[in-house]
């Protein structure tokens, strides 16, 4: 280790590849979070619904995803779906689909807890001014739940961004994959992996700071 001579020039030469990889990872994480929020919201409502079949289906989905390794889901989706005749997804789309389903299960739990924690009084106040059921959800329940669950949303975005490194397993050119490529092509082991590490770290920290600012903006509830 003491004999290792750092040569950072390979990093500068591959800097554009690193940045593209970082943006791809971020893009996949944000997209998965958005789709995951939509899935999560629907599943959370399904879990709280009166209908037993809906309840059970939502429960099964959440438990299936949460008790399966993400990498396995990535492989199932990328290698398994084409076997079933679903061939129109490229690597990135396949991974985003997997990560969205994964995020959906976790967001479903977050939203379920959020929806259950909203005091009945707010809904009654909305009823009392004559709001219809969907209006009560749209203008009272969801905005309040959004503010309650904002911190979990930030944590999930950071987790999802880190999980995009698993896309390297199906050769999506994100950060981990790119670091491995640079490593393999240049034999600059430490430079490649340290760069990837630093980029993950800085990005995650920046996300946390940015979302904390958003949380303060919406801190009117307490």
């Amino acid at each position: 280790m003491l004999n290792y001579n750092f040569n950072w020039s390979v990093i500068w030469r591959n800097w554009d590849a690193f940045l593209d990889a970082l943006l791809l990872g971020l893009g996949m994480a944000v997209l998965s979070l958005l789709v995951g929020c939509i899935i999560g919201l629907l599943v959370a409502y399904a879990r709280l619904a009166q209908n037993r079949v809906l309840q059970w289906a939502a429960w099964a989905y959440v438990e299936l995803i949460r008790n399966t390794p993400l990498l396995l889901l990535v492989f199932m989706c990328y290698f398994g779906l084409p076997e079933l005749g679903i061939r129109f997804l490229d690597k990135v789309e396949s991974f985003v689909l997997t990560l969205s389903l994964y995020a959906g299960a976790y967001m479903a739990e977050v939203f379920r807890a959020g929806l259950s924690s909203i005091p009945r009084q707010y809904v009654e106040a909305a009823k009392a001014i004559g709001m219809r059921p969907w209006q009560r959800q749209r203008w009272v329940v969801l905005p309040v739940m959004f503010r309650i669950t904002l911190p979990s949303l930030s944590n999930n975005l950071i987790s999802l961004f880190k999980d995009t490194s698993l896309a390297a397993a199906i050769a999506v050119p994100e950060l981990t994959f790119t670091a491995r490529q640079v490593n393999a092509n240049t034999f600059r082991v430490m430079e490649a992996w340290l760069t990837a590490t630093a980029l993950y770290l800085v990005t995650c920290y920046a996300i946390a700071l940015a979302l904390r600012a958003v949380e303060r903006r919406y801190a009117s509830i307490r």
Binding site: Q121, A125, A126, I129, R147, I221
Partner: peptide, 12 residues
Amino acid sequence: GMVFQSFNLFPH
């Protein structure tokens, strides 16, 4: 119209 014991204003 209804006014409640615990106000029930929309907190957001």
